[in-house]
Each structure stands twice: as structure tokens, then as C-alpha cells.
Design a protein around this nucleic acid. Sequence first.
DNA 1: TTAAAAATATGACATTTATCAGTTCTTTTT
DNA 2: AAAAAGAACTGATAAATGTCATATTTTTAA
Lengths: 229, 229
Amino acid sequence: MESRCENCIVRQFNSLRAMSKDELKQVSDSKTTKAVKKGEPLFEEGEKLNGVYCVRNGVSKLSKLSANGKDQIVKLATKGEVLGQRSVIAEECTNLSAIAVNDMEVCFIPKESINNTLQKNPNFTLEVLRHMAHDLKEADDVIVNMSQKTVKQRIAEAFLYLKNNFGEDDEGFLALTLSREDISNVVGTATESAIRIISEFKKKGFIHTSGKKVGIKNERKLLELVEGF
Amino acid sequence: MESRCENCIVRQFNSLRAMSKDELKQVSDSKTTKAVKKGEPLFEEGEKLNGVYCVRNGVSKLSKLSANGKDQIVKLATKGEVLGQRSVIAEECTNLSAIAVNDMEVCFIPKESINNTLQKNPNFTLEVLRHMAHDLKEADDVIVNMSQKTVKQRIAEAFLYLKNNFGEDDEGFLALTLSREDISNVVGTATESAIRIISEFKKKGFIHTSGKKVGIKNERKLLELVEGF
DNA sequence: TTAAAAATATGACATTTATCAGTTCTTTTT
DNA sequence: AAAAAGAACTGATAAATGTCATATTTTTAA
């Protein structure tokens, strides 16, 4: 397993690629690698972060607890994504919890390394800015989906999203397996409602399931549903 | 009316305050001031923007058209806010429309001035980044509200938001008057549903109205409602 | 391997929200 | 000032979603 950031492939996907050799060396020297087991938190809502987490492997859900006691999953972050950036930059406590959806391997980079580069290397700052601009656009889209689409449409969309972003395994099941509860927390609905709609999709032949695993059988039908028939 | 950015008070509220004197001079020389009447667009979803808009006066709604033909208002931007930043930075078309809610005065700043400074002045870039980090956090909160709160709670919250961010007039009405349709587009519901709930609030003595105008009578009750009794 | 716990699933029912049709009030235009 | 257009409002009803109770299956731990 390669442990120098300079040689890490993951870096190609995130803003760290805009760092100079020296800066990268410094990050590499100060970083620590950490294994996080499924279900364990990287950090929790309200914590003050002393650095950011670069995901090498596995998937993390970023969620926020609502007043009614339910978690809302705002984003699923995978290989290459950097978590905690927002709160390190704004120097605030995190507004989100990050919990491993499956076993993960992450690198923790102390905020000093980040802040230092932010102040000295405009290219890096600009790169981070571009990423954040992208995240903001995605967040706007989520807002519109949440408020204008039905639960059925949101679940159909979630399955298509999972296929496009995480792919399928050999047997044609979605590579990222989420519990029914996680699915309901992604689309913002009651777990029972999510289960019911999943059953309906199964009956209609849009998907097939095996335990928690879900496979897409009729992508076109799901797409039509999302678009509103 | 002062027309040099160097002396513009509005600048204190946004990232332009991190510009150097020279940079500000350049922005001031290249900017154009524009009056936008109530209901007119600053720009529309899908357009390619050649610069950003700095709001001097008035309020703009940032919205996105959903598949079912309804607008979702994602944000209300007022004095001091800079619009179009996200799409200029990401070099993409806007994902949102900006329409004047009341008569506005805005300055258009060509993207060259912005991009130029972004590449040369890390302080400015960092300042923009901080603002965007803040916007992203707010967007996350909106996602959670949209998916976890009832329409009633969202409307109560909207009124409190309007009071806190735009204040009240001499007679105790909310200073920013929105049509019932705009309110329903902010909270993501049918206009009739919004009207019905506004009537209910009136009956219960939480608010009072006069035409379109809404005044908050019992802030505590509204707050309790938002928190879930 | 078995018992216990947790997750998934389904039914019955309550609540919330959307839709449609129509009325009244306000604003704009003539 | 009257006519026309657009908002605001209300009622009836349908559809979507949440809640609670309970059964079944799967996973975990003893």
C-alpha cells in the first residue's frame, strides 16, 4: 500500500492535485492514515475539526440530525473526496456527521497544512473553490428535488444515482449496498414508506432484490418515473 | 449616489472587501450600474454569465424551475450579496434564475476583473471561499428543513427568517413583502396550501395580515411550532 | 447452533398535502 | 369609474405520506 501523498492516485480526483511538490511533501509528512469500520464515525455534528479527511477507500454518509430525531443524509462521499473542508475553511464546527457506510481507509490531514497552502498558493485555493462551487450547485439541485419531487421519484432517482456513481457488481446488483433506513434518510422519508415503494418497484419489475441488495432491471422505466412519466 | 466601488458601503458585506486598492479601482472602472424593476430578471437559468452582480439595493429571488413546472426559490439575496459567483468560478451556465422581488439597483462586474483577482490575490480567493463555505452550510440546512419539516413548520420558519433578515416596517409588518405564490415557492408547496396555512396562523393569532403584507404577532408560538411544540 | 436482536416487510388507519372548481377581493388597464 | 385581469381565498375531494402495530426474515452474539 502506497503511503506517500505524492504517489497517491486518489489525489488526482481532488483539490490536492493543485499543490506544489513541497506542499505535498509537507502534507504527506503530517498526515496520518486511519481505518474506519462500517458504522463508525469519522466525526460528528458539532465537533470542531482539526483537519480534513481524504477518502482512500470506502464510502461515508454525511448527515445531519433533524429536530424530529431523524437523520437526513446530505451526501455520500467516496474515494478521492475530502471531508471536513467546509468547516476547516470557515473555522466553524461541522454541521454534519460523517459515518462510514462500509469499511473505510482515510488520511487525516491537519488543518495547519491546509491553511498554510490556502494562504500561499492561489491555485490550490482556486481549486478548492471550484470544488465547493460544484458542491453548492449539487446542493441546490437536492433542494429542488426534495421539495418538488414525490418520494417515489426521489427513490427512483436515488437508485439511478447509486448506479451511476458507484456502479454494479458482477451479479448486477448496485455496488453500494445501503440499508432501507439509509435509503429513507437519503430521500427524506419514513423507513416504512421507502420499503413500501421498494416493494412496489419490485412488483412492477423495475428492480430486483436479494436481502439488502438492489439491482436495477429497467432503467428506462425508473428514468421516466423521475421525469414525471 | 456614490458610484466608485472604493467608497461603496455595500462592499463591506461581501468578498470585495479583500481586494487591494488597485484591484478595486480596476473593478470600479469596468463595472456598470443597472436598475432592475420588480419582476425583471437579472439572469435566467441556463444562461452563461459574463460577470457577477453585486446587489446595492433591493432583493432578488434565486430560483430553479422543477420538472413539474414550479419554481423553487433557493435563496433570497439582498444588499451586499454577490450573485452569479458560483457559475463564473466553475465556468458553467447558471443553475438558477435571479429575479427582482422589488426594484433593485445592482452593479455588473465583468468576469475578467474577478478571475484576474482570483488568480493573483489569495486573500480575495480565500474570502470568496469562506462565503461559499457559508452558503454551502446554509444549503445543507435548507435540505434538512425541506425533507424533515412539515409545510406548516416551514412557513413559520420562513416568516421568522424574513423578520430576522429583512426586518419590519413602522407598522410592524415584515419589511419584505412576498406574494403568496413566492412564499409557497420558498417553502416548496402548493400556493393554496400556503394560503390555507397563513389563514390558520391568522386565526390562531400568530400573525396578522393586510393585503399581501404579513406581521408577526406571536413570535414565540411560531418558534415553538418550528421546533415541534 | 441456537437464542436474541435487528432489519425488513405488510396491513390498517390517520394525517398531511395536492388538486380542481369556484368565489371574493385587489390591482391594473381602459 | 368601469371593466378586465390577476391574486387571494375557500370548500370538496383525492392522493401521498406518516404512524403504529405486528409478522417475518436476516443478522448478530452467546
